[in-house]
Amino acid sequence: MPNILVVDDDDIMLKAIKNILNKDGFNVVTASDGKEAFELLEHTVYDIVITDLMLPHANGLEVVGKLRHNDANRNVGIIVVSSVGNEETITEAFRLGADDYLKKPIMAGELLMRIRKLIANKNSKTQFYTKKK
């Protein structure tokens, strides 16, 4: 079962996404701020990280940046889900290594589709990666 970490400071969003993803057979862990997310990331490797941008303790960009700089997490699929609409921030998120960006309010179906796509991509990539090793 793929492991997903969801980081958002809105508890309603956290619960809702958790429910929706659970139903579709994903294992979901939630964090409500940047610090909690970092602690979780230290111990477990996730397949997908879904993060908001404005978070207490550390912003979402930092989460993205740290993930990409960490060897264990380099291949994590990162989806940024945020209500921030300004272009610069979005480009910055991609520049730091986010795979996808969804603007709130989101469509649940779309989120699921993108998660599946990322996981599929990732699987092919890891195969390649392990072979090379």
């Binding site: 309603i12 969003m13 809702a16 709130k104 309010p105 469509m107 179906g109 779309e110």
Partner: peptide, 15 residues
């Protein structure tokens, strides 16, 4: 109030 909070997060079919 709760429904509105959800609507702020979800559109599409859920919305």
């Amino acid at each position: 109030d709760t429904l509105i909070r959800y609507r702020k997060n979800f559109r599409g079919e859920v919305g």
